[in-house]
Design a protein around this nucleic acid. Structure first.
Lengths: 146, 146
DNA sequence: CTAGAACCTGAAGTTAGGTTTAGGTCAAGA
DNA sequence: TCTTGACCTAAACCTAACTTCAGGTTCTAG
């Protein structure tokens, strides 16, 4: 089963020009073409795209993702490198989750802050509120600034 | 109490050139200068930097962050806008956390995959392993690609 | 056979978010 | 007073990751 670039764009939500850009960068080393030169994406390329998305989210650059995909072409000799890369990603993503959680807490504090301000009609109300009156869960995320 | 740009760089980990860039972009509308023209950061600016970091992590651009800081200057008239912005951020960050969790799961699968491959000396081992033998927690995150 | 939708290429353009450079000025200690 | 490390500006530069453009080819439905 094979897909045209337009179909892949629909399936994955990645634009056609991005798919062509990835191809230009060598992300699909085994992709076939029709006689007329039209790209034929297979399930392999769809799976590669899922890994690309995963690695991109984990903070890897296109260049480094390409490096990984090259290792995949090399076979078992590169197993150690590939393993190490994923363990490194694991740590990075753990850090990202922690940071995102802190961000979330700050945002929740701000939501409370502005709800309180709007209810009172003025920002002075939450700004001057004694700490004990701030809901416990968000108390410690208080910043003085607006 | 006020801080030089170098001190702020040390405190926050943000480079001096980035701090000057933020200033150029108007992120510190109330920052004072010494007679000689040297920036004097106060606690207000430090707090603004914390909010900038928070909003940046939540996916807002510098331009939009500046927009928010402008609203803060406007006083209570902009309370609703600011509230809405934070509720929007709340949703965005929730989506980000979900995506990061999926990414994490995929990476954990890959860690298992490569550990198994390395133990066996070949990728064929995890690749051909029947689903029942894959640890339960990660089973569903399996991708066929390397 | 033909129209038009979908595809192709190489090259240039875009955007965000900084960083670097060049040429100065400021401020605190010896 | 002098030095020297920290600071200043404007403007040019940089990079990643795409996107757009111009001009041409392929494929498919009627």
């Amino acid at each position: 089963m094979s897909y045209s670039i337009g179909e892949v764009a629909n399936i994955t939500g990645i634009t056609i020009s991005t798919l062509r850009y990835y191809d230009r960068e060598g992300m699909f080393p085994n992709m076939e073409r029709s006689n007329g030169g039209i790209r034929m994406f297979s399930d392999t390329e769809i799976e590669t795209l899922q890994i690309i998305e995963c690695l991109k989210t984990s903070g890897l650059s296109i260049k480094d993702i390409k490096q990984f995909l090259n290792w995949c072409q090399e076979g078992d000799d590169s197993l150690q490198k590939r393993r190490d890369m994923f363990y490194e990603r694991l740590e990075v993503v753990e850090k990202q989750m922690e940071e995102l959680q802190k961000t979330m807490n700050t945002i929740k504090f701000k939501c409370w802050y502005y709800d309180t301000a709007l209810a009172a009609g003025t920002e002075e109300t939450p700004k001057n509120m004694p700490v004990e009156e701030i809901p416990e869960e968000i108390r410690k995320y208080r910043y003085k600034c607006d």
